[in-house]
Nucleic acid binder design. Structure first.
Length: 847
DNA sequence: CGGATCGAC
DNA sequence: CTATGTCGATCCG
């Protein structure tokens, strides 16, 4: 039995410290010991106090969420269920299993490189980083609880023999480049994620490869390599699992020349080949995941690491099976906080995430719950988008306490200098400057200011940053600002188009003088810093009160006003132009490959968007529905079609299909928003129902509980007594006119509680609703979580289905982008709490 | 727009 | 002693 709800657990900051399961190696420590040691090293520190504070904030968020949950009524939940399930259908329709995405992940990358290059380190627990912070550790060290993102001094307490190797990025970059040279052969558009990870789309490679002669798939062992021991390393690790190279075409192996190996043509073989080549070239091992989308591929690569690979077959059921018991924390985008919040709702696995989809849609923001839904359905991006233009650039530094204004200003200038250098390398200018400060209690603040003309030089950036800094210093005066970190960021870059306009404008407006002085200014870094100098350089009026003036200077811009305004104008119009063209191309793109299959007539519909498809389905429903002859056409795996509705229908029972039709029918009325339903939708609804009364209504899916209640018991064949027929009519009618509530007053009647299934005699809906509420609060969550329908398919058993009544919210563009949202509760946070909180923070910031 | 937060590497 | 640096996304006020 699963305990659900109010577990605002007080596991404190320990949770944050990333302890992991320890496979009880011969050496190493068990979890308990690790926790204890970390706690001893940690407690009482400023860092720890701050962690506790953050933890409490999370707990407050959870509490708020739970309060919100308490207030959710049955009706709301059921309605949400309907809406979400409509979306589920759309998402299912758009499921795309035709791509083969690979995620490659180098094993303990930095540590592995260091071990490779220094044989002394082999067999020893090592970590890469510093006493302050570790970037990674080898597997040996991990047995002691030494992990990435852990400070070295704590790691040393866990594992006194730990060797800490300083970072050497140049080396890692070089190795990374070697690996990328291999990857690019399989997908020239592969997407690197940091130095040690990458996504590949090998769909095209797989096709080409089918026709490749064996020799193109033959690779040789590296025999020249002289390892540390002078020996010859024949990559023993890779071949430890001898299944690795023997499946696909064993006969081809025999023909291979000594010291060579031939790989097959399957996706698995391709990935083995990639890993083989990586290891031969770099002596490093990689893990890999193969799946129909990036999210799954990433989770797959985690499955058999280190030095393993795993595949999720491109079948809906395989995807669902893979997700079934997978802890949500394994999902990219779900971090500690989200994990904890969901855990408070009793959600730990992906299947539970699916089961609670209705609740989640009420408790979280749209972006969040939609993300959750994608996750629980196993949807992710099926193509690798090249990353767009950079949005910001920043630099920050941690140091031992700095508390004098002078030091802080000069540090700030230094950061601006570094940043300006980087900005100019990429030829970027931004309009927003953000200053970041972390005080000695680890509390972080950011302060931003946006100016009219974009900045890129040290002087320009510093002019803005110093004001922000000055304001912060003032705000604590007469106390010193005690900081341990400062950072400067520039954002709000001009887009490519805007740049062109700007260049034109600049060349036409600015004559040589100013421009050159801009370009040359930073080269002569002779200025021995000091902010006083800068304030001299700023416009007049700043020499009264340094600090007051500083605050007003926000919108100073070196060129004259008219230029600034002119630029602004141009930028706007050009941005508009860009947007328009983008729309057009987007449309064209989406035109290209989207073919929907109408779930009613089963004909392929090429359409721009869902709305159009829905319109078609509408027509089908009102026109040909009566025929009710649902021929299921033969459908071989046409890899072309991006949308695979048919195969699903095939694999599910007919009733499931009917379920979808019902829902679609009930949803298309976009006027049927939130709390009101138009009569036309109700008409259609009754039509469908009366058209298909003969169809045996089988238990369908969880969400039918929602429909049950929506349509009241009148549509539940088993529970409808004959004399309720009348009720049905009235009911529908009532809904037509007033449907602010799913339950309409009906005089004396016997209603069946959709939760506990018991009959409830009521004379008022209020009392019945109350009963359902109570029932629901007690049992629904639990009941839903206990459903065992996940493995088979998400949409299965439950009792007594009825047609749907769904609000016509537009859910266009099921594009399954790569975006992963952060998380927030959708409801507003109490202002009081927040402001008092921030006040506290401000007070505390300078103690 | 500004500030805070989350999450990934 | 000693708890990173950079970036993107999202949400709310």
């Amino acid at each position: 039995m699963k305990k659900v709800g109010n577990s605002s657990c007080n596991d404190g900051a320990l949770l944050r410290m990333g302890l992991n399961d320890n496979k009880a190696g011969m050496q190493g420590l068990d979890k308990e010991k690790i926790n204890k040691i970390i706690m001893e090293a940690t407690k009482g520190s400023r860092f720890y106090e701050n962690e506790l504070k953050k933890d409490q904030q999370v707990n407050q968020r959870i509490e708020k969420m739970m309060q919100l949950k308490e207030k959710i009524t049955t009706q709301q939940l059921l309605k949400a269920q309907l809406q979400v399930d409509k979306l589920v259908i759309e998402l299912e329709q758009s499921r795309n299993l035709s791509s083969t995405i690979v995620h490659i992940d180098m094993d303990a990358f930095y540590a592995a490189v260091e071990m490779r290059d220094n044989p002394e380190l082999k067999e020893k627990p090592i970590a890469v980083g510093s006493m302050s912070m570790l970037s990674t550790s080898n597997y040996h060290a991990r047995r002691f609880g030494v992990r990435a993102a852990m400070p070295g001094f704590i790691a040393k307490k866990l594992c006194p023999h730990l060797t800490i190797v300083p970072l050497n990025f140049e080396k890692y970059s070089k190795v990374s480049k070697e690996v990328r040279e291999i990857l690019t052969e399989y997908d020239p558009n592969f997407m690197p994620m940091g130095l040690d990870e990458a996504y590949l789309n090998i769909t095209e490679h797989l096709e080409k490869r089918l026709n490749w002669p064996e020799d193109k798939r033959r690779f040789f062992f590296n025999t020249e390599r002289t390892t540390e021991k002078g020996g010859y390393s024949s990559s023993p690790v890779l071949f430890e699992d001898n299944t690795l190279l023997m499946d696909d075409h064993p006969e081809q192996r025999d023909q291979s020349v000594a010291n060579s190996v031939v790989f097959g043509t399957s996706a698995e073989e391709v990935v083995k080949e990639i890993r083989f080549r990586i290891e031969q070239k770099t002596q490093l091992t990689a893990s890999a995941g193969i799946a129909p989308n990036t999210m799954l591929a990433k989770m797959c690569s985690d499955r058999n690491k280190p030095n393993g690979q795993c595949r999720v077959a491109p079948e809906r059921q395989a995807v669902l099976d893979f997700l079934k018991d997978l802890p949500i924390r394994k999902v990219p985008g779900i971090g500690k906080v989200t994990e904890k919040m969901l855990k408070a709702l009793g959600i730990v696995t992906c299947s539970e995430l699916y089961q609670q989809r209705a609740l989640l849609s009420l408790l979280f923001s749209e972006a969040s719950w939609r993300n959750f839904l994608d996750i629980s359905l196993g949807l992710g991006s099926t193509h690798l988008e090249k990353d767009g233009e950079r949005k910001s650039m920043s630099t920050e530094r941690t140091f031992s306490e700095i508390n004098t204004a002078e030091d802080q200003y000069s540090l700030c200038r230094e950061l601006c200098r570094d940043l300006a250098q980087e900005l100019q390398k990429e030829g970027l200018k931004g309009k927003t400057v953000t200053l970041k400060l972390k005080n000695v209690n680890f509390e972080v603040k950011t302060r931003a200011s946006t100016v009219l003309s974009s900045v890129s030089t040290e002087e320009e950036i510093f002019a803005v940053a110093k004001d922000l800094l000055g304001t912060e210093i003032d705000s604590v005066a007469p106390h010193p600002l005690r900081i341990r970190l400062m950072g400067v960021r520039v954002s709000g870059f001009l887009s490519e188009e805007e740049k062109k306009y700007q260049q034109k404008s600049i060349t036409s407006f600015l004559k040589s003088g100013k421009e050159i002085s801009f370009l040359r200014l930073h080269a002569g870094k002779s200025n021995p810093e000091c902010f006083t100098k800068n304030s001299e350089a700023s416009p007049r009026g700043s020499f009264f009160d340094k600090k007051r003036a500083a605050r007003q200077l926000n919108s100073e811009n070196p060129p004259n006003e008219t230029v600034g305004k002119q630029l602004f104008h141009d930028k706007k119009s050009s941005a508009h132009f860009v947007e328009e063209t983008k729309k057009v191309t987007d449309l064209q793109n989406s035109n290209m490959c989207k073919i929907f299959t109408c779930p009613v007539c089963f004909e392929e519909q090429s359409s721009n968007n869902l709305e159009e498809l829905n319109r078609h389905i509408d027509e089908c429903l009102s026109g040909s529905l009566v025929k009710d002859t649902m021929e299921i056409p033969k459908n071989d795996n046409s890899r072309e079609s991006t949308l695979n509705f048919l195969p699903q229908i095939k694999s599910e029972n007919v009733d499931e299909c009917q379920n979808k039709v019902d829902q679609l029918a009930g949803t298309d009325q976009s006027a049927c928003t939130s709390d009101s339903c138009t009569s036309s939708s109700t008409e259609k609804f009754t039509q469908i129902i009366s058209d298909k009364p003969h169809r045996e209504r089988q238990p369908s899916n969880l969400s039918d509980i929602a429909r049950n209640v929506c349509m009241k018991q009148c549509l539940l064949p088993k529970r409808i007594s004959e004399d309720n027929e009348d009720l049905f009519e009235k009911t529908v009618h009532t809904e037509e006119t007033s449907s602010s509530c799913f339950f309409e007053a009906k005089g004396d009647s016997v209603l069946v509680c959709p939760v506990c299934n018991s009959e409830q005699k009521t004379n008022s809906l209020v009392s019945f609703n109350k009963h359902v509420d109570v029932c629901l609060n007690k049992g629904l969550i639990q009941e839903l979580t206990e459903k065992k329908d996940f493995p088979k398919t998400y949409n299965t058993e439950n009792s007594n289905r009825v047609g749907g009544l769904i609000r016509g919210q537009q859910c266009t563009n099921p594009s399954q982008g790569t975006k992963r949202s952060g998380l927030t509760t959708s409801q507003s946070v109490s202002k009081k709490a927040k402001s008092s909180n921030s006040k506290n923070t401000i007070d505390m910031f300078f103690k």
